[in-house]
Amino acid sequence: MHLCIDMQRLFADETAWQVPWLPHVLPAVVEIATRHAAHTIFTRFAPPATPSVAEGAWRAYYERWPQMTREALDPGLLDLVGPLARLVPPARQVDKPANSAFSRPGLASALKRRGITTLVVTGGETDVCVLATVMQAIDLGFRVVLPTDALCSTSDGAHHTVVALFGARFSSQVEATTTQDLLRRW
């Protein structure tokens, strides 16, 4: 299954959370998702309506970023970027309240019921939502394939550090590759 993390206008457009790398990795993500649309799940980061309804440490986070709550945002910014939005359906889209794709209740159990054992993870940010998703996927027993040219971050250094971490510490569970190699083998 291809899990594409948070390739939304929220991160592509000029917002406080814009990820400048996103347009550069978008062609690779589109290629993977187009070839395997029926086996793709797009996650969307879904901020709370207001900081006051956020729980725990998330409340302080959104008090720092009140302009990024649904109360303040143009609702269209939560949409997937255009080339990916056109793939739904057959691809599926799920909203998540926190960094990991698995913060979406029931996602892991739905994948396991379908017999999914390997996840191809693309999207952003490498050092935040992708990192959280991959670490939880490892804990849940999934094998993870990361086409590193289909991952993006606002920080080059953090991106490279996380990719190196996966190779150095998690090579039994995580395989770093390229989009071209992934598509040749899938």
Rank of each mutant, 00 (worst) to 15 (best):
M1C: 09
L3V: 10
C4I: 06
I5G: 07
D6A: 01
F11D: 05
D13M: 04
W17F: 11
Q18W: 06
P20M: 05
V25S: 06
L26C: 08
A28M: 06
V29M: 05
V29S: 08
V30W: 09
E31I: 02
A33C: 15
R35N: 10
H36C: 11
A38P: 09
A38G: 12
F42N: 01
F42S: 01
P47C: 04
S52P: 00
E55D: 13
R59Y: 07
A60F: 13
Y62Q: 04
W65R: 06
M68S: 12
D74W: 10
D74Q: 09
L78P: 07
L80N: 03
V81M: 04
G82L: 14
G82H: 12
R86H: 11
A91S: 11
R92N: 08
N99E: 05
F102C: 11
G106P: 12
G106F: 08
L107P: 14
L107I: 13
A108H: 07
K112W: 10
R113L: 01
R114Q: 11
L119N: 07
V120G: 12
V121Q: 04
G123Y: 07
G124H: 06
T126P: 13
C129I: 00
L131H: 14
A132N: 03
V134W: 10
V134H: 11
V134L: 03
Q136Y: 00
A137H: 05
D139A: 11
D139Q: 05
G141R: 05
R143D: 10
R143Y: 05
L146D: 00
P147V: 00
L151P: 04
C152P: 08
S153N: 03
G157M: 02
A158G: 03
H159P: 02
T161I: 07
V162G: 11
V163E: 11
F166C: 07
F170A: 05
Q173Y: 12
Q173V: 00
T178A: 09
Q180T: 04
R184G: 09
R184H: 14
R184D: 14
